[in-house]
Design a protein around this nucleic acid. Structure first.
Length: 416
RNA sequence: GGAGGGGUUCCCGAGUGGCCAAAGGGGCCGGACUGUAAAUCCGUUGUCGACGACUUCGAAGGUUCGAAUCCUUCCCCCUCCA
């Protein structure tokens, strides 16, 4: 007898449950079961929201249960309207295929696909592609009541805003069927996912029941469990940055930025994040946070970065941050390489307006923006504050400058 | 298909011929204070060869000395009716 259920609940992974008692029994039983998590390939990387669900996946798998990761090659073609204000832009088939491949690769970093208890990765296109429309409507569609569907919380926004297309309503049927398929083929009994998936998960549970009833076969087991939405203490969606989501792929969000994001979260979120994304014991977390909130935050940022990008990367991100904020420079700071001849007429050396430099390196989105930043006193070059928007700086081929905008943005600029 | 309402700068939302690069709020960004946190306060928030110039108010034309504001056509959205 284990207490996996209690562990997950105490750390904050559990939000909604279709059958609380039964699921507790399932998770705490010594008898392994099969579960699945579905991810749609809406982009070619995963963001931190996915990672939340993947943590649950790991816990379940580490406890000896069989995990199935479903990458939605078929559902991705349609797009889940759950919780969305607007219809998702339809993706081309090529794009979906590309994303499926990328997402699969990244997911493999988090879940164990080899060893004694490997997780398996499936793509629902495998069984959806050959399913013809009429058969699907007759087999699956017959079990869905539109009135009930329309009352689903997940669709409320779309209905308020005026447009929910027929295609999108079909999404729920697809996901529901996925669960049934995995149950039939692999004996999958539990679906996990984010709270925005609740409606779709419940649909799967219900569909399984109805199909069993219609076929007169023995009732199979279908359970669903969701994890809460990752919110910051002040009620915002976590993982949002000015550039969009916080991505797991390095070319989308650098390790340094990733680390910085967590370093800069509010104090109130530190405990939550430590519980969710580290495996530190709960009492140790409490102690740490109580003793020194800043140290706890640092530890949290490090641990999460380590989990996602590996220890080495995390170490260098932490060191880069340390160097930067104590006034030094780090090799790990982002580097921009600029062509000298694009900055000034003279071929060997010359003076370049600081504003141009910032704009060219991407530190500022335009020269106007750069001038604004300078006049507000937010720009430093090589540790010296730039006083006037018209200031120039001497450059020559091979020179490296360190530009700083605001308190937190640093960049090395190499003149070529 | 019919009738009405509407599309404004990142978002919401004022503006119905010059005083409009466009009120106000949110967000973002910068500064101060701090702990690379939060809260608070201040400032900024189209672009550029920068006290001036250029380009913006769904799209394209037109009227006018002058248009986000008026006219025409088109595209899109919403509400009610069918």
């Amino acid at each position: 007898m284990k207490n996996l259920f209690e562990t997950l609940k105490a750390r904050g992974y559990v939000y909604q449950l279709t059958h609380e008692d039964e699921i507790r029994g399932l998770l705490n039983s010594d008898e392994p079961f099969t579960f699945y998590l579905g991810i749609d390939p809406t982009a070619d990387s995963l963001h931190i929201g996915h990672f939340f669900a993947l943590m649950v996946f790991r816990y379940l798998q580490d406890a000896g249960n069989k995990g199935i990761l479903l990458v939605g090659g078929a559902t991705g073609m349609v797009g889940d309207p759950s919780g969305k204000t607007d219809m998702r832009q339809m993706m081309s088939k090529e794009q979906v295929a590309h994303n499926v491949a990328e997402v699969t690769e990244i997911a493999k970093r988090f879940i164990n696909t080899s060893g004694e208890n490997p997780a398996i990765i499936v793509n629902n296109a495998e069984w959806m592609d050959g399913y013809d429309y009429i058969s699907f409507l007759r087999d699956v569609g017959i079990h869905f009541n539109v009135n009930t569907m329309l009352q689903a919380e997940a669709y409320a926004k779309r209905i308020d805003e005026g447009g929910l297309t027929f295609m999108e309503m079909g999404y729920m049927l697809m996901q529901a069927y996925d669960f049934v398929h995995l149950n039939r083929k692999y004996g999958c009994t539990l679906q996990i996912g984010g709270s925005d998936q609740w409606g779709n998960i419940v649909a799967g549970v219900n569909l399984g029941r109805k199909l069993d009833f219609a076929a007169g076969t023995a009732r199979q087991t279908f359970f669903g469990m969701t994890n809460p939405l990752l919110m910051t203490a002040d009620g915002k969606k976590m993982g949002k940055t000015e550039k969009g989501a916080l991505w797991v792929a390095k070319d989308r969000t650098s390790t340094y930025d990733f680390y910085q994001y967590f370093y800069n979260v509010g104090d109130g979120d530190v405990v939550t994040l430590l519980k969710l994304f580290t495996k530190l014991p709960l009492d140790e977390i409490d102690e740490l946070v109580f003793a020194d909130i800043v140290a706890a935050k640092k530890r949290m940022a490090f641990e999460i970065t380590k989990l996602v990008h590996g220890e080495e990367e995390a170490q260098s991100a932490a060191e880069a941050a340390k160097a930067m904020f104590s006034g030094g420079v780090s090799e790990d700071a982002p580097l921009a390489e600029l062509e000298l001849k694009q900055l000034c007429e003279d071929s060997s050396s010359g003076e370049v307006p600081v504003a141009s430099l910032l704009a060219a390196s991407g530190m500022a989105s335009s020269k106007s923006e750069a001038r604004r930043l300078i006049s507000q006193g937010g720009v430093q070059i090589n540790g010296e504050k730039i006083e006037s928007p018209d200031s120039v700086v001497g450059v020559a081929a091979g020179v490296e400058l360190v530009a700083r905008v605001g308190k937190k943005k640093y960049m090395r600029i190499l003149i070529k």
